[in-house]
Amino acid sequence: MLYAKGLENVVVAETTISAIDGEQGTLLYRGYQAEELAKSADFEDVAYLLLNGQRPTEAEKDDFSTALKTMRPLPDDLKKLLAALPKDLSMMDALRTLISSYTGKEGWPPQQQEAMRLVAIVPTIVAAWANRSCGKDAIEPDPSLNHVANYLYMLTGEKPHAAHIRALSAYLILTAEHGMNASTFAARVIASTEADLRSAICGALGALKGRLHGGAPTGVLELFSDIQTADTSSETLLREKLERGERLMGFGHRVYKTTDPRANALREVLKSLNNQETFLSEAVAIEQLATQLLAEYKPGRQLHANVEYYAAAIMEALRLKPDWFTPTFCVSRVVGWCSHVIEQSQDNRIMRPQQQYCGPKPD
């Protein structure tokens, strides 16, 4: 029986949601280039596309956006639960707890309306917990703002700048979906048992909490900080890390053998942020140096910048706290998770892989 550690190169599902070409460095959403969508579309356009299989007309987009706005506010029971949770609980744990408690009409198969409720409520939960962690009251959603602008508003209490909205929109569009990653696979496995949508999303949140999946942007910031505070040159510091066998966070990807197309798009987005020219040039210089050194120390591995490298740079430019990075990722990826759960339900078979026993045998 074939054994593939980590299920590498094992196909576990057919999908019409997204396609990744790791050799060419491309990412498609329902046949559209994700990079191009990040430049020209709003988050609502892409959420509709992923959930429905086609881009919306203007009327469909208006209806979809209006529906999301009506679903944003936290119900009173969730507000009470949020206030009762331990203050030292991590934001990911709080998000998972609140999602698991978000009741509604659910069953099998999951319905579009359930997915929209989760897409709408996740930003509100994240922002409410962020404010509670800072000793502040939650900020109610503003129905005059679109999905991304409203999220930034709920985090800060201030109407965001257009450049900041555009930058975060691009990031959220580019991270809304990415194939059979660990959290998406977890969601589909749970959905294959005919569990409800909330259970599948909570499983995905649990998978995303791990440092190897959802924690990478924080590691990139630590890398930036090490370089900025080092007494030696950037090259010397990076060489020392590689010689100690440390991983350079923000570089390398299980799928892409060239620069992550999402990183290319976010590099361009970073240029649009005001007063970020120096930071951008530093980030680009570090990327080029690290890529050269990785080719030297790990020849043949083809380790290039991934989405988390420039995501960290954008999060820093927007002054989002590191604890908010992974939950902000959830604000977008919940769209992909829901899309996969719905797709799984349409042609379901319970996931049941085999294992290869390598323990002791009886005499």
Rank of each mutant, 00 (worst) to 15 (best):
Y3C: 04
G6W: 03
E8G: 03
V11L: 11
A13N: 01
E14H: 15
A38I: 00
A38R: 08
K39S: 10
K39W: 02
D45N: 11
L49P: 02
A59D: 12
A67M: 06
K69W: 00
K69M: 10
P73W: 05
D76E: 14
L78S: 04
L81W: 00
L81N: 01
A83D: 07
A84R: 05
L85T: 07
P86A: 10
L89R: 00
L95F: 13
L98Y: 06
S100W: 05
W108Y: 14
Q111H: 07
Q113G: 11
E114K: 10
L118F: 13
I125Y: 05
A128H: 04
A130S: 15
S133A: 14
S133C: 13
S133H: 08
P141R: 06
S144C: 04
E158Y: 10
A167L: 10
A167C: 06
L172F: 03
N181E: 08
R188N: 08
V189C: 07
E194P: 00
R211W: 09
E222M: 09
E222C: 04
F224R: 06
S234N: 13
E243V: 00
R247F: 02
H253F: 04
R254T: 15
K271P: 06
S272F: 00
N274C: 01
N275C: 12
T278V: 13
T278W: 02
K298R: 15
H304E: 06
H304V: 01
E308Q: 05
I314Y: 10
I314N: 11
L320G: 12
K321E: 09
P322C: 04
P322M: 03
D323F: 11
D323N: 12
T328E: 09
R333A: 13
G336L: 09
H340E: 04
I342W: 00
Q346S: 12
D347K: 12
R349Q: 13
P353K: 07
K361P: 05
P362I: 00
